[in-house]
């Protein structure tokens, strides 16, 4: 589904990703772990097409097509979704409206008919249950006045509603207490499907206790320096990142 080859990306002339390779197939859950500043968020942002990142070389192939130069909204409509690390508050833009506009933009892109108001609201209410989201939040402005946990839940709720093919969760566990973490994790687990891939970007192993990944990758200084199964996350939690780096340097 996603194939990243020798990707080099810089921000303001500083190279952050320095030749990254990653293969993600449908149905898989990949965890990208690494210390602060290793390039995790850059990777997440460059896949969804955020401004300000320059691709120096390499390619990001999604469903057989190179994403370079594709507008973020087109990527979204094609099924790529980012659950933000810091979801922004947007005063004056109604939550329901955003959802409806997002949903209809995607459906139109695929040549499907728009949902009518009743179908849409039924669907919204069904998906809110995925993360036990309070219905009152629906009628508020996007993320405005939401607690940290509510913002993260809202991201997963949007993901449930928009049913992406490729979901990227950027530090979704940060700012969540253990109860909220469990709710969010069970929401994400409920969204695991054969035709959907999930990339979890995280500094800590904590979230991976609840969302068990198929693969774990260690990102350090802009490259993936080690890949393994779910047990690698536990090893990292126990021993830190230094031994992986030393191992990579030695090789």
């Amino acid at each position: 589904m996603l194939s990243i080859k020798n990707l080099k990306v810089s921000i303001n002339d500083k190279q952050i990703l320095k030749g990254l390779n990653l293969e993600v197939k449908a149905g898989e859950v990949h965890a990208i772990m690494g210390p602060n500043g290793s390039g995790k968020s850059t990777l997440a942002n460059v896949i969804v097409g955020r401004d300000g990142y320059k691709i120096d070389s390499g390619e990001i192939i999604y469903e057989g097509k190179d994403l370079t130069g594709i507008e973020p909204e087109i990527r979204a409509r094609e099924g790529i979704f980012l659950a933000f690390q810091y979801p922004v508050e947007i005063p004056g833009v109604n939550n329901v409206y955003l959802l409806k506009a997002a949903m209809n933009a995607k459906r139109k892109h695929r040549g499907e008919a728009e949902l009518d108001a009743f179908e849409f609201l039924d669907l919204v209410k069904e998906k809110m249950k995925v993360v036990n989201m309070n219905e009152d939040l629906l009628n508020r402005a996007v993320n405005e006045g939401f607690s940290g946990g509510e913002k993260k839940r809202n991201e997963i709720f949007q993901m449930a509603l928009l049913e992406p093919k490729l979901a990227i969760l950027d530090e979704t566990d940060s700012g969540l207490d253990i109860d909220a973490l469990k709710i969010v994790a069970s929401g994400v687990n409920g969204l695991r499907r054969e035709d959907r891939a999930i990339i979890i970007v995280t500094h800590y192993q904590r979230l991976l206790d609840y969302i068990i990944p198929d693969y774990v990758h260690v990102l350090s200084d802009g490259k993936i320096i080690k890949s393994g199964g779910k047990e690698l996350a536990l090893e990292l939690e126990e021993k830190g990142y230094d031994w992986v780096r030393e191992e990579a340097d030695a090789a």
Binding site: E73, I90, L98
Partner: peptide, 11 residues
């Protein structure tokens, strides 16, 4: 804010 909206599919 602009990017957030676009990342959800709005042009």
């Amino acid at each position: 804010m602009l990017f957030y909206l676009r990342s959800r599919g709005l042009d």
